[in-house]
Simulated scan of single mutants.
Amino acid sequence: MEIGVPKETKDQEFRVGLSPASVRVLKENGHAIFVQTQAGVGSGFTDEDYIAAGGEIVATQDSAWNRELVVKVKEPQEAEYKFLQKGQILFTYLHLAADRKLTEHLIDCGTCAIAYETVEQPGANKLPLLSPMSIIAGRLSVQFGARFLERQQGGRGVLLGGVPGVKPGKVVILGGGVVGTEAAKIAVGMGAIVQILDVNVERLSYLETLFGSRVELLYSNSAHIEAAVKEADLLVGAVLVPGRRAPILVSRELVQKMRPGSVIVDVAVDQGGCVETLRTTSHTNPVYIEEGVVHYGVPNMPGAVPWTATQALNNSTLPYVVQLANLGIKALDVNSALAKGVNVNNHRLVHPAVQEVFPDLVN
């Protein structure tokens, strides 16, 4: 099969769909891999690295896109819509619940669009291709949050770890899944006061075995959310409803009650965000101040650490890419996890969660 690897075009997105090591595996399986020139440079991979692995370097976007299977990291940008075509398999993060325009175009063009974030292992509600980036985003959320708490960045001037004689900052995390757990690890490591709120009591029990008394674990309801958010120096949105838009848990009215210069980092922004005042930002312009609070809404946070993120992503995606390359669309018949990843196919919106978001697009 011919496999295309375009250079990412999202703002400051330096990850790449396939690493040279992955290209080598695919080449050993008898496939031809066409990598757009400079596609891997941001992740530390040169064109020569891809050539040595058995890939072919192509000069244009079109040459990388015009293949049977296209492997990316982020959803196609508007300038890339023209490359999508019927009979093509697209394998990437999509987050369609927050992007009606892309959803409509994928339906119109007939591409088989498989989203990393909805590939789901049966019986366990595990999202194997979302997990590695969730780990990175969770850890980065506190790293970035600590930075934007600095006074020069518009924040309150709070050091999360505090110092002897001065209390540490408080980190409130909405959601105790992978993102929330990883955020808590970093926040605890910095010496912050940490609270996690979640609706899953079993998950809270697990987190107690992980953190003990170092993290306060609360059942997530409106009263607990309001009390916690008002006192937060850093609020991390870590809510995930697979395939669906994130629920709004923090209203504008509640944001108004936060201390001026507090920081919100909403990792759920690529699914619409769980904070009413949060809107999408970019690595170039990552924050804005609204209601006196610093808001960070970059949807491709792991793109800030592409050397780590690309390799972590490929470790998880490669087995699925190999299966798609070897079997084509028939891979969906033999791999139920991969089949659950299909969002759009043959001019139809097929993923149940995305159908609930756009019922008028279901035919």
Rank of each mutant, 00 (worst) to 15 (best):
P132A: 07
L130D: 07
Y93F: 04
G123Q: 02
D108G: 04
L102K: 09
C112H: 01
T118A: 12
T111G: 06
V119R: 08
L129P: 05
Y116H: 03
L127F: 14
G123R: 03
L96K: 13
L130Y: 08
T111R: 04
G123N: 01
K101R: 15
Y93G: 00
G110Q: 13
A124Q: 00
I114A: 04
L127Y: 14
D99Y: 12
V119Q: 09
A97I: 11
L127P: 05
A98V: 15
I114G: 02
F91S: 03
H105D: 00
E117V: 11
L130S: 10
T118R: 14
V119W: 06
G110L: 12
A113H: 10
A115I: 07
T103K: 09
E104M: 02
N125L: 14
Y116F: 07
K126I: 08
N125T: 10
M133C: 03
I114T: 04
E117I: 11
P132T: 09
P132M: 11
L129R: 07
P122C: 00
F91A: 04
Y116N: 01
C112K: 01
S131A: 10
T92D: 02
C112E: 00
A97E: 14
E120T: 12
G110I: 08
L94D: 06
E120W: 10
L94E: 07
T92E: 02
P128L: 12
L127R: 10
Q121T: 09
L106P: 03
R100G: 14
T92G: 02
G123V: 02
A98S: 15
K101C: 08
E120H: 11
L130M: 10
G110R: 13
S131I: 09
L102S: 08
A113T: 10
L106W: 05
Y116P: 01
D108F: 12
P128A: 10
E104R: 03
C109Q: 04
N125K: 15
S131H: 09
I107Y: 08
H105G: 00
A124L: 01
F91D: 03
K101T: 14
I107M: 07
P128H: 11
H105S: 00
M133F: 04
T92Y: 03
E120G: 05
Q121D: 06
K101W: 11
L96C: 13
L106M: 07
S131Y: 11
A97G: 13
E117P: 09
C112T: 03
R100M: 15
R100V: 15
H95T: 09
L127M: 12
A98G: 15
Y116W: 03
A98C: 15
L96M: 15
E104L: 01
C112W: 01
E117Q: 12
Q121G: 02
Y116L: 02
T103N: 05
L106E: 02
Q121E: 07
T92I: 03
D108W: 09
I114L: 06
L94C: 08
H105F: 02
I107D: 04
C109Y: 04
L106H: 04
A98D: 15
D108Q: 13
P132I: 13
E120Y: 12
L96V: 14
T111W: 06
S131V: 11
P132H: 08
